[in-house]
Design a protein around this nucleic acid. Structure first.
Lengths: 158, 158
DNA sequence: TCGCGATTATTTAGGTTTCAATAATCGCAG
DNA sequence: CTGCGATTATTGAAACCTAAATAATCGCGA
């Protein structure tokens, strides 16, 4: 077996794991998307944005929001436009910085989100129902290692 | 603690795990996307399609391809159009069924993919470098449980 | 053989996401 | 206080993805 072939063989496990991670998340994600659409006529990105805001009552700047959601700023602008038009979030000027805007849930938005979040959580519990509490914990810890390693290697600018 | 609050508390672990799964895959996925763009001026969906074809030299029908890639048929049509225009894949009529087409890599496509795949695998190994071989195995098995449970519950039709 | 439901691929319209460019503002160095 | 690089949000162009409609073909049952 030459070096190149050995290299390949040695790394097959990582590749298999990665593909399985992708399969699992896509499987669950698609299920959640379709349920959000059927039950609440909304989309995952909209739900995500509201979920982020829910944790911070005073609101968040769009840059922070885009980092947390791991999407581009332009994307956040678009989703915010929609939710604002529906009265679920509002843009609030930031005192002392005329560039920035704080996005926050309106009372109506908070109410709507509460309903969705409750059901959403049940979907997740159901999706992960094949695991024991101990296995959930193990998975959580191992993925924590992955997350940490990925984030520390190459934070930005190779 | 009332029932609703308890319910919430009991299921917090699953939700946390789900969010972490999402974070990990998105983190890695985005890194791969940007590297595919920088290094090979291509995209993840195009890479994915070629990766599927690579495993089956005789080619695959578009329906099979769309199921494996977990995207819609129309999407596969679009990506195939691009790759075909670049001479990386070709559409081959199926003997005995004039509806179906076999998509397969051209020799040029196979060559291009081989180069990308080698580097791609290194990226994955690097991303998962924070784990021991044993941890990779554990993660793989646990995610296998998740995958199986999600797939068996509600295969289709509520 | 005929007809009809199912399968296969494509098209269409609409929404999502990214990247890059733009415009406004900030804050600091001089 | 002036200018200039950095930050903030938005916009525009292009790619991606979906769902639903369309068109061609298949294959089976009567």
């Amino acid at each position: 077996m030459d070096m190149e072939a050995r290299l390949h063989a040695d790394h097959g496990d990582e590749l298999r794991l990665w593909l399985r991670m992708l399969t699992c998340t896509q499987l669950i994600e698609q299920r959640i998307r379709s349920r959000l659409r059927e039950r609440f006529a909304t989309t995952l990105p909209r739900f995500d944005l509201m979920a982020q805001l829910e944790r911070v009552p005073e609101g968040m700047k769009m840059t922070v929001l885009s980092k947390r959601m791991m999407v581009t700023g332009g994307n956040v602008t678009g989703i915010t436009d929609q939710l604002e038009a529906e009265g679920l979030v509002q843009r609030v000027p930031v005192e002392g910085d005329r560039r920035a805007l704080l996005i926050r849930l309106t009372p109506a938005g908070r109410k709507v989100f509460a309903t969705m979040a409750l059901e959403h959580e049940q979907w997740i519990v159901q999706a992960l129902g094949g695991l024991s509490a101990r296995e959930v914990e193990t998975l959580y810890k191992l993925l924590g290692k992955v997350k940490q390693h990925v984030k520390q290697s190459e934070p930005e600018g190779a």
